[in-house]
Design a protein around this nucleic acid. Structure first.
Lengths: 213, 213
DNA sequence: TAGATTGTTAATCGATTAACAATC
DNA sequence: TAGATTGTTAATCGATTAACAATC
């Protein structure tokens, strides 16, 4: 397989790529230079064939009996996932969660740069958080338009999420990363990624119950 | 379909149930008493047949030409997801994210009660956060055993995640909800739910690129 | 009644897993 | 060389979507 891009990768494979990245970084730190899909599969409890198919999307070719060059895989995965390709984002809601997101280097490492933060609470506006000033949410749309911001992050309570989304859409944003436990009503040309953290409690409980049986 | 339980529901369906719940709460607040799968599907951009299959897991029977009783569906979904069935949890790592998790009522509403918080930083130990005292992480295992805690929540940096998991496992915990961007090495009888928030930036970018095309 | 909607069976689709020849 | 591992094609599996009779 030659050149692949984000769009052409099946979502299940896309979701596994960061896992491979974790493991490869770990192996590299331990001085390893090559790795086999057998090894990766065993560590991550996946099927070796599946790992081979996923890695094929990177375009990196392995050598029979040897395996894959870890460095090459890391570079290719980072490229494929767009981690080298910074996109600018606005964040709304600087409660504990929003503040945490502002502080995570991991987000920037993954190609997302939060350039401004907004809140509707006058008490929070004007504060400095991790080097960014908190602005009033009324200014979001205009500023987003002017700065050509692509992504909006919603870290408000559920009750304020729709209003935040509306402001982002008015500001020409093309994708929303939503952490509020709410289903947003947005036009279909806007991409949405819901982080259903709370909903996932049930998934964990299901797994625990399944192990029990 | 009669009685169903968490274990027998396919994971994709399980992940959609909270979405239905959101929508149904919203409709109920607007005075609606019944709803059709056609309506639900249109609002959530799903296939009506899929919605019908998902709702069948709740055991609630709809009436042709009329639809489903919203109240019945809400009760059944909450029951099925175990939201009425509190499980106790310990949390490790009281940075911004951990503190946010401690403060979210939404978590408790979904059947998970965080009964204690831990940190390795002596400066944080002893503080009171949302009504719970922060304890030294060294005490976690013993206390978990004594209190028969089932779930551990990891909200540490990636570098501290494995140690937190090890302490939890020593404490007899049966499921781990992991927010750290790390792949944990744990025995297979322990259930794990990774919240790959950071990794999902790529998923959002993929959706945006797909819309562009 | 007529027509919308349910519940269910069958068809399709896509992802995972198995099989295996090629290769270093 | 012998055997582990790759890359790929075929088989399986499960979820989604389509079709449709039953029903209120």
């Amino acid at each position: 397989m030659k050149s692949t891009n984000l769009v052409s990768i099946p979502e299940p494979s896309l979701r596994r790529l960061p896992q491979y990245h974790h493991l490869l970084v770990h192996l590299q730190a331990n001085g390893r230079e090559v790795v086999s899909t057998t090894h990766i599969a065993a560590d991550l409890r996946l099927d070796p064939t599946q790992v081979r198919k996923d890695l094929a999307f990177t375009g990196i070719i392995g050598r029979p009996k040897v395996g894959y060059q870890i460095k090459d895989l890391l570079d290719a995965i980072e490229n494929l996932l767009g981690w080298n390709n910074q996109t600018e984002a606005f964040l709304v809601g600087v409660g504990h969660l929003g503040t945490a997101l502002l502080g995570f280097q991991a987000i920037e490492d993954r190609g997302l740069k939060i350039v401004a933060a907004f809140d509707s609470d006058p008490a929070k506006v004007g504060r400095q958080l991790h080097g960014r000033e908190v602005l009033p949410v009324e200014k979001l749309a205009e500023l987003a338009l002017r700065m050509h911001i692509q992504i909006g992050i919603i870290a408000t309570p559920a009750s304020a999420a729709q209003a935040a989304a509306d402001a982002m859409i008015a500001g020409g944003i093309r994708g929303i990363w939503n952490f509020a436990p709410a289903t947003l009503d947005i036009p279909e040309e806007i991409a949405i990624q819901n982080e259903n953290m709370f909903a996932n409690v049930a998934v964990l409980k299901k797994k625990m119950a399944a192990n029990q049986a």
